[in-house]
Every structure is written in structure tokens, then in C-alpha cells.
Amino acid sequence: MGFEILRPGALSTVQDKGRRGFLSQGIQESGACDKYSMKLANLLAGNLEEPETAAVIEFTLKGGEIRFTSEEIIALTGGDMTPCINEKPVPMFSPLLVRKGDILTMGLAVSGLRTYMAVYGGIEVPSVMGSRSTNLKCRMGGLEGRALLEGDYLESGKDLRQFKKMIKKLKGNEKLAAVDEDEPWLRHSSTPYRFYGNDRMVLLRAVMGPQENAFTELGLNTLIRNPFRLSTDCDRMACKLEGEPIELKNGADIISDGIVEGSVQISSDRLPMVLMSDHQTTGGYAKIATVISTDIPALAQLKPGEWVAFQYVTPGEAVAICRKEEEKLRIFKERLKNIIYR
């Protein structure tokens, strides 16, 4: 029992929090680009104990069309692709009860870039090396290691008895469980933004280094004193930025070392590239800074042409921000437990 992909959208993949423990073998984490929205979708869909490990679908830029072949609890978060069920608009950030035969349709993202659909029980694909995430580069995980195609059939891993109990409690109370419009801070990750002219500019907080010594004082300041915009060269591997070139002392080449999600690499064109969840595991370009984990989701929701700025924070500040963000979701989970799933 699950759902059928009638139209797959631009790039739709099965993801969870990612595959950890294999970077030393050259296998990247993968996982949802916007992990905040993934976790929120899972909580809303009733996966209270598995917000990180229940697999979801990540839609990019343009959603698709899905036909449900059984009753499910689903939830949509992240970018707004104007979702409709049976041609009627449905709310995001809310649990949705779908019936057998219902068709979910999504269009182009009118805000954000990536939309997450969670299903109660999680999407049931085989766990490969500890994760259900699709790794497109290694062609593993998810559904046959690839993006979803028309005609694919996915199942949810729900326990039917538990599901019936959940439905009973949820029916008619969906609004109570939803994250309302008056709680925008809970709908998205807590990354600050400013305005650049009339445009919104996301402020990415980053820890300087580890190769700060490869840059001049001017170069280190250029990163934080100028706006950058996303180029068209952005995908699940990296976001290439455009803007003021960053001055290096010598060349951009270093002896290759390990890379993390968020690494801000400056290559020979002296422009920043922020590595995303499908990043290569090692690289030979100097890294001026690392975007903190809390701010990756906000970057993952930007389209080419949109603006970012950088701000340096200390590792201590970054860890504190990360813990505060986690606390936000923990409190929301308690709320769901207390008002719906008592």
C-alpha cells in the first residue's frame, strides 16, 4: 500500500538524514538538502520518533503528480509548490489525510526551491549502508539509486494498527496539529536575513577556515562585506556563487583534504562554492569558511539569482545555534504529543 508516481517533477529523490560513517571510503552523506524541513515534515506526518530516519521525498523546483493507492497521513514542508489534492488547494505545514485514489499535484516552486513530502511510517525502500537516502553519484540508496520516474511505485512502512489509532486521534484535528501562518519561525529554519534593495538576502553564518591562511586579510573581508548571488550552477553537490572575487595569497590549490557539507571552497576563479549534501568527500581547493549546519537548509531553498551574505561566527556560537534549533523541533514534537497523540 502506498503511492504511484504519475509525473516525477524536475528532480525528485527519496532522502533521509543521510548516510554517515563512509566519508573515509569516498562515499558522501547525501540526505535531504534542507534537513530542517525534512524533520518538520516527518513530525507533522506522525513520525514522532523517527524525524531523521523516516524517508521522505525531496522535490526540486517543480513537483510532480502522485496517486495514492491507500489511505495515508502525509505532510508537505519547505518550498511552496502550490500543492492540490484532486485539484483543490491543500495547506502545507499540516498533516493531510489522503484516501485511496486521491491525486496530489504540485507545480513550480513559487517560494523556496525544495519541497518535502513525508508519509506516516516513512517511505519503505531498502536501507543501504544504514540509510535510505538516494546517492545519485554512487547510484545507490533510495529507489534503485536514481531519481523517481513516471510509473514508480513507493510503499509506506506503516504499522496498520498503529496507523488506525493515529488516524482516529488526528481526524478533524489536523488544524490543531498544523504549524500556522502566525508561526513562521517554526515553518522554516532559523537563519536570519536582510534586505538588499528590495530583495531578500539570506545571512549565512560561517566559521572561518580551515584554510584561512591561504587568503589575504582583504580576501577574508571580501567574503563578509559583499553580497553574493547563486549562479545557475547549483545542484545537490554544490552551490556556486557569483560576486566579488576573493583574494588569495598564492594559488587556490592545497593538498587535498576532507570536505564537509557547508565547506566554502574557493577555486581558481576565486569565487565561493558551498558544498551541499552530495559533495565530494575530499578536495584540493582552499576552504575559506564552513557554513554552519543550521544555515544549510536556508541555502538549500534558494534559487539561482537569489542573494546571500556571510557572517563569521565562532565554533562555540555555531554549536549553541545548532542546539537551539534542535530545541525548537523538540518543543514542537512535545506539542504534537500533548495535543493530538495523547
Binding site: G258, V260, T290, P315, I321, C322
Partner: peptide, 10 residues
């Protein structure tokens, strides 16, 4: 010993 964001040390 250098910080790599809020999740890493090099």
C-alpha cells in the same frame, strides 16, 4: 587544530 564549521575539526 582548526574548526570546520560546527560539526568538524581538522
Amino acid at each position: 587544530i582548526k574548526p570546520v564549521g560546527d560539526c568538524g575539526v581538522l
